[in-house]
């Protein structure tokens, strides 16, 4: 019994210590196209056993990075390894790394079965495994149909089947939920989590923060090819969200003066409310009580992940839409997401 080097290393490290060593490790990874730096000095680590979200706006270098991990594009500088070795040195790459890079990367005239069989043959994967993965992604009924006739959702499933083909310990998915219906999205979410729970390393790119908030444990956030953050989802929210308190009162002007006098940062919010930044609801409530101001609402606000992400990457997006980016009515960055509970007098 001699397992491929990478895999036995991965499983071995899981048994050795609960907190696994990084499986994917990028150091100073850079990619230039002419004078454009698509990926700029990117360093990050991806560990096994959890889903790691790879987040960035469209065009931020996620796919380029994925291709460099896969040994498809040559880095201009830096390097990336999987279980300590470069992709080119993996002996049976499909048995160690499975990837979904582009859903439609299949000859339109070839059946799903033939496509998977041709991949299986390159890495000495038995034919029976093709039927297994087709069943796993729910394509067994259409496996003999031409892949060109597949919907985008079915193509994504076929791409996921090809990633799972070698039963690999490392999985890379580039925007796997694109084109999926809600049922499909839920299926992918659960699949990613269960793959991670089996001890695999799951690295998923997305431009949707909300999606990653529901799926990922760790986050690698990039903008314009640069690393913005490499942390857990929890930490990311905690360290990037400034909590605000929304307060409503019939005596808006008086309360504003009272709060300002108490040294709190206060600004007019939407619909005549006030938004207090950098203070807790307790502080605001006590200050109002001390000045005998009646409150109609006092609710702490938490910025959603999407807002945090938009905020962080707003200057990192290369192509803005034509939407005016001026905030409406001096509302805080991003509208409050938590439905504030009404506070009685």
């Amino acid at each position: 019994m001699c397992r491929p080097v990478g895999r036995s290393g991965l499983l071995g490290s899981i048994h050795a210590e609960p907190r696994a060593l990084p499986v994917i490790s990028a150091v100073g990874l850079s990619k230039s196209y002419g004078s454009t730096r698509a990926v700029d000095e990117l360093s990050f680590e991806v560990r096994s056993g959890v889903v790691t979200g790879f987040l960035g706006p469209n065009g931020s270098g996620k796919s380029t990075t994925m291709r460099m991990v896969m040994g498809l594009d040559r880095p201009t500088a830096g390097s990336v390894t999987i279980n300590g070795v470069g992709y080119h040195d993996l002996r049976w790459p499909l048995r160690e790394v499975g990837a979904l890079l582009e859903a439609k990367a299949v000859h339109p005239g070839r059946s799903a079965y033939a496509h998977l069989l041709s991949l299986a043959q390159t890495n000495a994967i038995p034919r029976s495994r093709v039927d297994d993965v087709l069943a796993m992604v729910g394509l067994e009924g259409v496996s003999r149909r031409k892949a060109g006739k597949f919907s985008l959702g079915m193509s994504q499933r076929l791409g996921i089947a090809s990633a799972l083909l070698g039963d690999p310990g490392v999985l890379l998915f580039d925007e796997p939920i694109n084109g999926l219906d809600p049922e499909g999205i839920l299926w992918v979410r659960n699949l990613l989590k269960s793959l991670a729970a089996e001890g695999r390393t799951v690295f998923v790119s997305s431009h949707l923060m909300s999606e990653m908030a529901q799926t990922a444990t760790d986050l690698v956030v990039i903008g314009r090819g640069r690393l913005i953050s490499d942390t857990s989802v929890e930490n990311f929210i905690a360290s990037n969200t400034e909590s605000t308190v929304l307060v409503r009162t019939p005596e808006t002007e008086r309360l504003q003066g009272v709060l300002a006098a108490a040294g709190l940062r206060v600004a007019p919010g939407a619909d005549g409310g006030l938004v207090v930044t950098g203070a807790t609801a307790v502080q605001v409530g006590e200050a109002a009580h001390a000045a005998s101001v009646m409150l109609h609402e006092l609710s702490p606000q938490q910025a959603s992940l999407e807002e945090v992400f938009m905020d962080m990457t707003s200057d990192m997006v290369d192509y803005h839409g034509l939407t005016p980016d001026a905030p409406v009515d001096g509302a805080p960055a991003g509208a409050p997401s938590g439905a504030g509970a009404e506070v009685g007098r």
């Binding site: 048994h15 000495a124 089996e198 001890g199």
Partner: peptide, 18 residues
């Protein structure tokens, strides 16, 4: 939080590398 050992159904490849 020790990850469960995965049981792979795939037989060993013969040959040295792809």
């Amino acid at each position: 939080a020790i990850a469960p050992t995965r049981v792979t159904s795939l037989p060993e490849p013969s040959g040295r590398r792809a």
